[in-house]
């Protein structure tokens, strides 16, 4: 692989980020323009609700794909796109929820509370979105510094639960044809399965590794000589 691809310059990273930002804005632009041109079909509210929900899930899965992609391609700079991807997932999730509050329920808080408490698919969808809030709020360098890397990372592992809840939300709302949620579930299963597999590999590696210090060397000064 070329050096430029492995190690892009700061300018190139900036350009890649701008391009990914542009790509992430496209679905939103398409919906806004489609709404204005009345080209979103017979039920535009439904079209927007479904599209924003689908993009939330897709962006969540893309965000979760960053680490495996980085690991298998060696393109370590990919991690620098992850925050933006995650924040876009949150933004589409909020738009999805906003449309539901406004154009589905017209801010009838009683009905909304009923929905969230009584209907499992709404309960898990709402839970997923609420779990995304702390992640969005701590998606900045200051928060990492304030919290410390370990605690920050522990908090951000909740993205796994968020993705599971998000896919469940979709699965539980479809009427009879589960093909689409099945596809999202399969992708999520691969992404989560890889992490489980890595943990297992790491466990085996630690078991197989020799003890860090041989008993015969205990207490002696060891000089480390470069090869």
């Amino acid at each position: 692989m070329s050096r430029a691809l492995q190690h892009p310059s700061a300018d190139q990273i900036g350009a890649i980020k701008a391009f990914v930002f542009f790509l992430c804005m496209l679905p939103a632009a398409q919906l806004i323009l489609g709404w204005r041109a009345d080209s979103l079909g017979a039920n535009p509210v439904e079209t927007i609700t479904h599209a924003t929900g689908a993009w939330t899930l897709r962006l969540l899965l893309i965000t979760l794909a960053v680490t495996p992609l980085r690991r298998y391609t060696g393109l370590h700079w990919l991690v620098r796109l992850r925050r933006m991807l995650g924040l876009f997932a949150f933004a589409y999730g909020m738009a999805h929820f906003g449309i539901y509050l406004w154009l589905d329920h017209f801010f009838d808080w009683q009905a909304i509370a009923n929905d969230i408490l009584k209907r499992p698919y709404i309960t898990v969808g709402f839970a997923a979105l609420m779990l995304m809030v702390p992640l969005a709020l701590t998606s900045n360098a200051a928060a990492i510094k304030r919290m410390g890397g370990r605690r920050w990372q522990a908090l951000h592992r909740s993205v796994y639960a968020i993705a599971v809840f998000g896919v469940l939300h979709y699965w539980w709302l479809v009427k009879a044809d589960i093909l689409q949620p099945l596809i999202y579930s399969a992708v999520l299963a691969v992404l989560l399965g890889l992490r489980a597999w890595w943990r297992e590999l790491e466990r085996r590696r630690q078991l197989a590794a020799p003890p860090p210090v041989a008993p015969s060397l205990k207490g002696k000064v060891i000089r480390i000589v470069p090869k």
Binding site: A42, V45, F106, A111, R119, Y121, L173
Partner: peptide, 15 residues
């Protein structure tokens, strides 16, 4: 899984 108390008439925004 959802309320049947109201409906969206296709072509209308309010339920």
């Amino acid at each position: 899984r959802w309320s049947q108390a109201s409906e969206r008439r296709i072509g209308e925004l309010r339920k």
